[in-house]
């Protein structure tokens, strides 16, 4: 608790300043105060928690799951084949400069309001960072350890299972922790562009009604949800990776 005290102070400070400015402006449709947002969150709890949060989390989790599977497969493939690595790695790094938000409307055009357009946006935002981070983890394997295994008669798959996977495991967790907020953003953007439910969609609808607090309420929910997922993953990470301090 003591460790979090400074960041807690900063957060409270920002909220106080925000509250103060909001009181001065006194126009909720321009800048709602934190308190107004909380009240609105409470008032809207039923549609937010029962309809829109599950919809967004559904897109997020589905997209994340597919990204993790595809990202891992790509990382493994690049690790296995140098030709593949040289062909794909630079392309993947370069593709990171494409603003996904700008091409997201295309997916809505292709897939309509179905879940797949939104999932695709999410995948596009998270798949490549996962692949690259995990692949870099594989690549950080110590050559000496690999040679030691070779002198012990290890096969290629032994080296992969007993050395490369444990070496890359911390990277894998970092990748997921990085991908969770990205996938939430991806889902929200896609919903903003075209959807019938979801927190992004809800926020946009409140915007058209000039309900400032109503715009912020789903956003607060969105970031709390992302933080909760990251916390769960961090917890799992701590349970699984007991040796990290040495690496």
């Amino acid at each position: 608790m003591k460790r979090h005290l400074p960041s807690l102070c900063v957060t409270v400070g920002i909220l106080l300043v925000w509250q103060l400015i909001a009181l001065l402006i006194d126009a909720a449709y321009i800048l709602p105060s934190p308190l107004q947002i909380l009240v609105r969150l409470w008032e809207l709890k039923e549609p937010l928690f029962c309809v829109h949060l599950p919809a967004t989390m559904g897109v997020t989790i589905l997209g994340l799951f597919i990204s993790v599977v595809l990202g891992l497969l790509l990382a493994i493939a690049m690790d296995r084949s140098e030709a593949l690595e040289r062909a794909l790695y630079p392309v993947i790094v370069a593709s990171q400069t494409i603003p996904t938000t700008a091409i997201a409307p295309l997916f809505i055009l292709w897939f309509g309001y179905s879940i797949w357009g939104k999932v695709l946006v999410t995948i596009l935002m998270t798949f490549f960072p996962i692949a690259i981070t995990v692949f870099d983890g594989f690549r950080s394997t110590k050559r000496e350890m690999e040679e030691l295994l070779l002198t012990l008669g290890a096969s290629k798959s032994d080296i992969f299972l007993k050395l490369k996977i444990p070496t890359a495991l911390p990277n894998f967790f970092s990748a997921i922790k990085m991908a969770v907020p990205l996938s939430v953003i991806g889902a929200a953007i896609a919903e903003w562009l075209g959807a019938q439910q979801g927190l992004g969609y809800f926020s946009k609808r409140m915007m058209t009604q000039l309900d400032g607090a109503g715009v912020f309420a789903p956003i607060v929910l969105l970031s709390v949800a992302a933080m909760a997922v990251v916390a769960i993953i961090s917890f799992a990470e701590k349970k699984i990776i007991t040796w990290r301090k040495e690496l």
Binding site: E144, M145, L149, L152, G153, A154, W243, L247
Partner: peptide
């Protein structure tokens, strides 16, 4: 096969394995 046991300069113990699991690595393979 397995005609020489090599002990490197750095101990090269796998940090994610316990002492027991490290020692058993050659037999595991």
């Amino acid at each position: 096969k397995s005609y020489a046991g090599f002990m490197p300069q750095k101990d090269l113990l796998f940090p994610w394995r316990t002492v027991e699991e490290n020692i058993c690595l050659p037999m595991e393979l």
